[in-house]
């Protein structure tokens, strides 16, 4: 890390090294420090500080209205477009303040991609859905380059074999799980460094969910993934670190295995075991 006086960089805790998987020290990718957020008069986030590491999945869990999605939206400045929304604090991507005036939110979102709860393909062809990002960012010049990016992205999203013969059909004609993978392909087509996922599987059946989860295992190798999920089992399955939010505050963040076997905070314990807090 270069010297960034405003950021107190914590020693990155290394998530549990899995057997047969050489987990080198993970690098800090995004760091949020003391983030407060208001929707008008109402404060929705209270002093949230969270580190998110490269090559790993960070899961945000917590009851509805706890602020986890709100926090996720801070990471790619999606909250900018909401009237009366005010963000305070410090959020850095590779040590750069993403709320600095010189940062263009559109450029930021090329580096920080987002996948939503409901698959939302554009009413265009499968090809155009994926080529959209590179097109608006002017990443490709020739048709062949576009075709190459589309194939690579769809392959990484595990969808290529299913759609390669019908790339000009509408993206909305795919099944729910395929649409979601199309949205992931669209998100990764511009080579983002961070992928935010807001309950990406809550509208999918278990098989489609399993496919997305496999995909996350693959994608995380060269991405920092942050996922909001209502399914604790999913958080337990896919993430290396888990953060528990409650009433707008970050209660506890730790290695996923620790959170689900022996959490420190009583509120975390109550939430993950399904008890009243």
């Amino acid at each position: 890390m270069e010297a960034q006086p405003a950021v107190r960089v914590q020693a990155p805790a290394v998530p549990e090294p899995r057997e047969g998987q050489s987990v080198a020290r993970l690098e800090l990718k995004m760091a949020a420090r003391d983030v407060n957020l208001w929707y008008g008069e109402k404060q929705a986030l209270f002093g949230v500080s969270l580190d998110m590491f490269d090559s790993s999945v960070t899961a945000l869990i917590g009851p509805s209205g706890c602020g986890k999605s709100t926090f996720l939206r801070c990471l790619d400045r999606m909250n900018d477009v909401i009237d009366g929304c005010r963000v305070e604090g410090d959020i850095r991507l590779d040590g750069e303040d993403i709320y600095a005036p010189r940062v263009d939110p559109v450029q930021l979102r090329a580096r920080v991609g987002m996948v939503f709860q409901k698959p939302n393909p554009f009413p265009k062809s499968i090809f155009e859905n994926v080529a959209y990002g590179p097109r608006i960012h002017g990443l490709c010049k020739t048709k062949a380059e576009y075709a190459d990016v589309v194939e690579k992205s769809l392959t990484r999203a595990g969808l290529w074999d299913e759609v390669k013969d019908r790339l000009d059909e509408s993206g909305t004609g795919l099944s729910g799980g395929q649409q979601q993978r199309l949205c992931i392909a669209r998100a990764i087509s511009v080579n983002p460094e961070v992928l935010l996922m807001d309950e990406p599987c809550s509208a999918l059946d278990p098989i489609a969910t399993a496919k997305i989860e496999t995909l996350m295992d693959e994608l995380k190798k060269n991405l920092c993934i942050v996922i909001v999920t209502h399914s604790m089992q999913q958080a337990a399955r896919v993430s290396q670190r888990t953060a528990f939010f409650h009433l707008g505050k970050l209660v506890e963040v730790d290695e996923t295995s620790k959170i689900f076997t022996n959490p420190t905070d009583q509120r975390t314990q109550d939430y993950v075991t399904g008890r009243f807090g």
């Binding site: 689900f260 076997t261 959490p263 975390t268 075991t273």
Partner: peptide, 9 residues
């Protein structure tokens, strides 16, 4: 139940 934390223990 897919028990977690204290329940799992």
């Amino acid at each position: 139940r897919q028990p977690m934390a204290y329940d799992l223990r």
